[in-house]
């Protein structure tokens, strides 16, 4: 038995390599990477009344004559028409504001959980993750009933006498902020918590022994050391929110146009596949910078851990 395995360790290792690396690589290459090439190709096609509704990139016009047609009009339209530029800027703005709000609420929460008694920590963390297991769509829907002009929040405020007439919150940008912070808060808290529990308490003790007050010690020691957690959490919120569709669609209004919703409309309502593809390409280009930043950080952390 032992002899036979020692005879071919290389061969077995090669097989294990092939399966473990090859199979997921092939899947992701085929179903994740290749599709982007096709999106790129179709973004330079023209809309056509055909099935599928776009023109081919290349065509054999005659024997040995290949005609390649690249149509940059979609990108020019995105650049020139204010609505697209406004949607991109607004998406980035919403993502930025919501990342900051998540950080503002999530950091103290993660800190409180990380410094809680050991036996309570798991329960507190569990309560953060739990809403994630119930439907995202339904949790966003819950806010419709709350923010509606005859909804629970308005009724409550009217009953308290704080306002005289119902506030218009639903279908405004404010509703989008609320919905995004509500949905993405756990994504901010989890990496922050993971980072904060790894901090060495001896550092804070040392600061305290040297006469540093707790609040000052927090700003001088804890906060700088939790930078990787802050960046990781912020990226997990920022990047997907830029392309968010469900929240702006259900809670937002005409003033809160976001690129994810625009792409959806171009694709489903206007049947303009090339323009939707061009929007996807631009969105991808916008997200590459924060994504590479996140990836770099992840690798640094992995190297530090190993």
């Amino acid at each position: 038995m032992s002899q036979s395995t020692r005879h071919h360790p290389k061969g077995r290792r090669r097989l294990s390599r092939l399966v473990n690396i090859g199979v997921p690589y092939f899947w992701l290459g085929l179903f994740f990477l290749l599709p982007f090439m096709i999106v790129l190709q179709i973004s330079v096609a023209e809309t056509a009344l055909a099935q599928p509704p776009y023109t081919a990139l290349w065509e054999w016009v005659a024997d040995g004559l290949l005609q390649i047609q690249i149509n940059l009009q979609n990108f020019m339209l995105i650049w020139e028409d204010d609505i697209y530029l406004a949607a991109f800027l607004n998406s980035l703005w919403v993502a930025l504001i919501c990342t900051l709000l998540c950080l503002l609420l999530g950091y103290p929460m993660a800190y409180a959980i990380a410094t809680a008694a050991q036996r309570r920590r798991m329960l507190l963390l569990m309560l953060i993750v739990l809403p994630f297991w119930t439907s995202f769509l339904i949790r966003v829907y819950a806010w419709i009933g709350i923010l509606n002009s005859n909804g629970l929040l308005n009724s409550f405020l009217l009953w308290l006498g704080i306002i005289d007439a119902p506030l218009q919150i639903l279908h405004t940008q404010t509703a989008v902020y609320i919905g995004v912070v509500y949905s993405y808060l756990p994504f901010m808290i989890l990496p922050l918590y993971a980072n904060l529990t790894r901090l060495d308490p001896a550092l804070l003790e040392a600061a305290s022994d040297l006469g540093c007050r707790p609040l000052r010690a927090f700003f001088k020691v804890t906060l700088p050391l939790s930078k990787p957690g802050i960046i990781a959490g912020s990226m997990l919120v920022f990047i997907p929110v830029v392309g968010e569709f469900v929240i702006p669609d259900l809670l937002g209004g005409p003033s809160s146009l976001m690129v994810g919703k625009l792409l959806w409309t171009e694709f489903f309502s206007n049947q303009d596949w090339p323009l939707a593809s061009a929007l996807a390409i631009v969105l991808l280009a916008v997200l590459v910078v924060p994504f590479v930043l996140m990836q770099r950080l992840q690798q640094n952390m992995d190297e530090a851990a190993s």
């Binding site: 690396i21 997921p24 690589y25 992701l28 290459g29 179903f31 994740f32 990477l33 290749l34 599709p35 982007f36 096709i38 999106v39 179709i42 599928p52 990226m235 997990l236 990047i239 997907p240 830029v242 392309g243 968010e244 569709f245 994810g260 792409l263 959806w264 694709f267 596949w273 939707a276 593809s277 996807a280 969105l283 991808l284 997200l287 994504f291 996140m294 990836q295 992840q298 690798q299």
Partner: peptide
């Protein structure tokens, strides 16, 4: 490999959906 594996975690759904549909077509 790592890039391909992490990208879907944060990639907006609209991009994944659109690109896969175009692949299937």
């Amino acid at each position: 490999f790592e890039l391909l594996l992490t990208a879907p975690l944060v990639m907006p759904d609209v991009i994944i959906g659109l690109s896969l549909l175009l692949l299937f077509v």
